[in-house]
Amino acid sequence: MIQIKKEFGKVPKKLKLINCVGGGSSSFGFWNEFINYDKNRVELIGVEAGGPKNSKKHAAPLTYGSKIGVLHGALQYVIQNEDGQIEETESISAGLDYPGVSPLHCFLKDAKRARYTAATDEEALEAFKLVTKLEKVKPSLEPAHAFAEAIKIAPKLSKDTIICVDSCGDAKKDMKIIKQRLGKSL
C-alpha cells in the first residue's frame, strides 16, 4: 500500500494485483491491505500451477474445480479422486506443487472476491524469458506464473489500468531447472 501510494499518490481507479498461489501465503501478504476495496477497483488475481501443457496433472484445485475435502487438517478444495485419496500433482515450480490450497483462498473464491486462473509450465517459462529480457528482475518460477497471467491479460486492458505483479521469489533457486529447460544460465 505504501509503495502504491508513493507511486500513484492514491489507490488507482483500476488496479489488478496478480500473485501466484500454491498454498497461498504470499498472496495474502500482497492482497491484505486491498481486500476491502471494491473488486471493480482492485481486482485480486491468483495464478495456480497448471502443470505441463500436455499433462493431466496440475496443482490448480481452484481453477479446475476440485472438490472440497480435508487435507493436513484443513477443509479446502483439494485435488482428489472419488474415494478421497489425494491425487499427485505436477508443476515446474516446487512452491506451487501442492494438491490443496489455503481455506482462505477457497473462501475468497466462493465469495468471488478473488479470481483464480492457472498458467502452464511452458507459459511460466515464456514469461520468465520475457520479464528477464525487459526488466531488471529475475523472478523465480512461482511468480513467473503470475507474470504469465499479466502478459496474457495486459493487451486487453484499458490504458489507465495498473497491473501489479508480486515477484515473490528470486530465480537463483531455480537456476538448475531454468538452465535445463531454457538452456541458459542466469
Binding site: 472438490k67 475435502g69 480435508v70 483439494v78 482428489q80 472419488e82 474415494d83 478421497g84
Partner: peptide, 9 residues
Amino acid sequence: GYYNSVIQY
C-alpha cells in the same frame, strides 16, 4: 482412518 474418506463418502 482419516476424515476425508468419511467426507467423500
